[in-house]
């Protein structure tokens, strides 16, 4: 995807609300952006660094609640969002660091257990719904949410793109390719895993914060539900694990698919997504992003994977 096309799309997104006022469409783009950010957070840890984590629901949930409470306590939106990211990093890295010594599927099920413990704890310690106080209700506008989310989304994409080609990113990729070999050439595996986890937690926390400032009221356990762990995994793989556009493409498909079947059989969208996921894992490891690259046949502008 050349720079030109990217700029055009960015411009289109920025101008979109000027022409389309229905909240329905703004909501859709908001969701695509939200899932993109969350999936990119998974992508950094799972796609670049190769650690398949099933614990992202905890990152997302902690971020959501941190942001929400900060916002209600009076912080301005940007600060509250930041709190979401920071809160997530602090809490989850504290608890998550011991799990880093686990490898492969042990890591996956360990992080899953952590996420489940978080969910159960919140369900029991913080039951009920969190409502927005009237002052904040008054200042609520969908359009502001739209711009914040799209803005953060674009920033996240640029960040991951830069990360991928940075020294840190390359270290992560070598850990993914062959952990033992990476260690042999002097890469401090633990340190980079921690960094990857922190970046991942921050992004997921931001996404959680966006969730928190968007939904007027929600049951406090909702952002901890395991679907927030599974969706980014599916989305990233389908879109193309380890790529910059993958999570975005995957999110687009996910939201569209869900919308298409929302009123009829919601299960069908999950089944289709699951089937596509299996096909991608077995036969198209580069996901949709890889397919698009093939169509572009590798010109100088295209986003090809050089590993």
């Amino acid at each position: 995807m050349g720079i030109g096309i990217s700029c055009l799309i960015t411009l289109a997104l920025l101008l979109f609300p000027l022409f389309v006022k229905e909240e329905y469409y703004l909501n859709l783009i908001f969701l695509v952006s939200l899932y993109s950010i969350l999936s990119h957070s998974w992508n950094v840890f799972g796609g670049l660094c190769g650690q398949i984590s099933l614990g992202h629901a905890a990152f997302f949930g902690v971020g959501a609640l941190s942001c929400r409470y900060a916002w209600i306590a009076g912080a301005p939106l940007p600060a509250a969002l930041l709190m979401g990211g920071i809160g997530s990093v602090l809490v989850t890295c504290l608890v998550g660091i011991p799990t880093l010594k686990l490898r492969s599927h042990y890591f996956a099920i360990g992080t899953l257990a952590m996420a489940m413990i978080a969910l159960i704890t919140v369900q029991n310690q913080l039951p009920g719904v969190n409502f927005l106080p009237p002052e904040l209700m008054a200042g609520y506008s969908v359009i502001s949410r739209y711009y914040i989310c799209v803005g953060v989304g674009l920033a996240a994409i640029l960040f991951v793109g830069a990360l991928k080609h940075s020294k840190i990113g390359l270290a992560m990729i070598s850990i993914r390719e062959d952990e033992d070999a990476a260690e042999a050439i002097g890469i401090n595996i633990f340190r980079y895993k921690v960094v990857a986890m922190a970046i991942s937690a921050f992004l997921a926390g931001l996404a959680g914060g966006l969730f928190a400032i968007y939904y007027v009221s929600f049951y406090r356990y909702i952002p901890f539900e395991l679907t927030w762990s599974f969706d980014p995994l599916l989305i990233t793989f389908i879109g193309g694990s380890g790529t910059v556009l993958g999570p975005v493409l995957g999110s687009l498909c996910y939201v569209i698919l869900r919308e298409t079947f929302a009123l009829s059989m919601g299960q069908l969208s999950v089944i289709i997504f699951g089937a596509v996921f299996i096909l991608i894992v077995l036969f198209f490891p580069k996901g949709l992003s890889g397919l698009i690259d093939k169509l572009h046949a590798g010109g100088p502008d295209s986003e090809t994977e050089k590993q």
Binding site: I52, Q267, I271
Partner: peptide, 22 residues
């Protein structure tokens, strides 16, 4: 092989119960 077996069974975990629901 090991990583992908986890992913594939994960896909089945999504597909099977939802097929049952339908």
């Amino acid at each position: 092989k090991i990583k992908n077996s986890l992913l594939i069974s994960f896909g089945i975990l999504l597909i099977l119960p939802n097929t049952i629901i339908l």
